[in-house]
Amino acid sequence: MVNLEIDFNGLILRNPVLTASGTFGYGEEFKDFVNLNALGGFIVKGTTLNPRQGNPYPRMAETPKGMLNAVGLQNKGIDEFCNSIYPRIKVYNKNIIVNVSGSNIDEYVECAARINELETIPAIELNISCPNVKQGGMAFGTSCPSAKQVVKEVRKVYKKHLMVKLSPNVTDIVAIAQAVEEEGADSVSLINTLLGMAIDINTQKPKLSTITGGLSGPAIKPVALRMVWQVSKAVKIPICGLGGIMNAGDAIEFMLAGASCVQIGTANFINPSVTTEIINGIYEYCSSKGISDINDIIGKI
């Protein structure tokens, strides 16, 4: 028997495998492929106070070992989430985490306060790192003072587990991680997408309507791993690691680098049952190495 359970700063995960916001819908899109209840948890789409239509098409471009997206937080807004989506999905897993975004601090705060009322949502992931919205979004996550300010205000109204999602589009991610830790974040998740672009040489036009977008997938894994390792050396709160994880081996690398749990993102598009395979793969890895508790490998590097 191998223990895969993680105490993620009070959030009890049956295993360290969660899914990344914006890549797993509301979970229900995957119910034909995955036993949702067997996941450590899942993080739903980026949710904002008001409904958003997102950016114009085209919003996606395939790149070497990855993809660019410019979805721009299309979502139906917090009312729709609380009134119709939440009641429908809450049975799927005890750790459904809502990814919260906003274009100003008041929006973040109001959204977080609303989710605080939802009984079976144990945590939010504060997205201060979205590269695909004109206002706010990533801007909050790219300077220490603004990151501190938004976390401080949200902390006042949000009483459960507060995870803060960090942007890799900064010179010093460690400083941002320390800043949000000081303001009372319970954990950090990293990384969000890396800002990138792609051009169609036939039309001589950008492939995305927004010109630039967020890069995800295996192409970003070495960068993400390095950042997780650096942050893990500098903060006490636990880390949820993500960026390009495609299989159990990748997930174990992140845990060795200091992540207590991981999120699977773009890999869900290529193999919608990949999360189940990763959980099984982590179990097999531990058994074959004689590791009886997954906690023993966290931060070994």
Binding site: G22, T23, F24, G25, E29, F30, G54, Y57, R59, M60, M67, N69, V71, Q74, T266, N268, F269, P272
Partner: peptide, 10 residues
Amino acid sequence: ACGIGACLCC
């Protein structure tokens, strides 16, 4: 990208 309604790219 996904074909199953998860990514909102299409």
